[in-house]
Design a protein around this nucleic acid. Sequence first.
DNA 1: AAATCCAAGATTTTCGAAAATCCGTATTGC
DNA 2: GCAATACGGATTTTCGAAAATCTTGGATTT
Lengths: 222, 222
Amino acid sequence: MTLAEKAYDSLRRDIVAGHLKPGAPLRMAQLSERYDMGFSPLREALNRLQAERLVTSVALKGFSVAPLSMDEMWDATNTRILIESRALRLSIEQGGDEWEAGIVGTLHALMLQAARGTASEDDARALEVRHHAFHKALLVACGSGWLMEFFQRLYVESERYRHPMLAPRPGEPARDVQAEHEALARATLARDADLACALLADHYRRTAQRLESLMAPVAAAG
Amino acid sequence: MTLAEKAYDSLRRDIVAGHLKPGAPLRMAQLSERYDMGFSPLREALNRLQAERLVTSVALKGFSVAPLSMDEMWDATNTRILIESRALRLSIEQGGDEWEAGIVGTLHALMLQAARGTASEDDARALEVRHHAFHKALLVACGSGWLMEFFQRLYVESERYRHPMLAPRPGEPARDVQAEHEALARATLARDADLACALLADHYRRTAQRLESLMAPVAAAG
DNA sequence: AAATCCAAGATTTTCGAAAATCCGTATTGC
DNA sequence: GCAATACGGATTTTCGAAAATCTTGGATTT
């Protein structure tokens, strides 16, 4: 793995995790020290991330972490529903045994990690990885590289918004996300496309609403 | 404009125009001579293009022009119809006077250039620019940055396939594309979403079918 | 007092060479 | 004879410094 690829992975992780804050300028000297490499691999990584809209850049003024906004979050949510509904329908039409096995397997792995909780940083990351794997497994039989690419893009984007939610407020009742995942998997395996798509859309809309109510006070305070 | 941006524009144009052939390796030394600049700005541009799937890369083996295939062409066509249908419906719901004026204006400019023909290279490029502007104008009131981004990505992709079609075979009757554009604009301005989306889908499917019949002999020969 | 201009420092961008890696070829060993 | 390997040239990748540009602060002018 080249340094430029390491730089890409590290920067992407730090941006998605919110360790590099939205809007923050990314100075070459700082990044060079932080990731212990020269400018060249960093600039290559930043250019890739710019194409993915995770960073912005202005000529001769450098790069910044792409900002977040509630409008953009809703846009991503709605577009996600459009893309994934289509992909899910295609998968339900075309998916075979291997596809079904993937859903069952990734759901099981997700459940195990969810039961384990997210006490440590590693556990939280593992949950995120398995969550992604499950949602990808649902769609992977759609046979469309473009739908899968757009799914990936929007998944990463939504991860940026979801991150603050992973540390749930003390008093609030935790929403049973895993039950939603299970119902979604069941409808999908039963090849009930209408139900599965409805559950998927609900799943994302609820997450978005939760996020909005969670961020509203933050935005008001900041 | 920085050299890296110039490199990005030049490479993108040459790839989309087919001047750099699908699958061809992109050697740094050659590119450096061709575009008269050092490696750094070229590598930055190539990394951006890689993120947009216009070039592929393998670590330590360098970059290549991304390949084309009929499967991928159909995938892009179908995904385009999904994305643009949604964007068109949203635009028809939400678009105001400015949006309508944009459609009428860009359609008129497109017609003028189409009447002028595509004898010279410059005319062909001008037609392509106005064609893009018209299709963008139809969707621009959708209010979704993500839909617009995906539209752009798929437009560029389809441009790569469309390019060989711009030099029409001598004997063949030219399809009246501009009539389709006019009908599409009329249905859109009449706020008839169902008809407009149907025309849009037909427009793209016909282009794809035309391309398939045009490329089949090429693929068989090569 | 407000606006403009200039210089110094900070920052980004680009280059040219060094380092690391790959590929084809010929040689060695069995 | 054939596989494995070591060598040399070609290529990519990375670094460190130079060039170009921006920003900041104060001095100067209106």
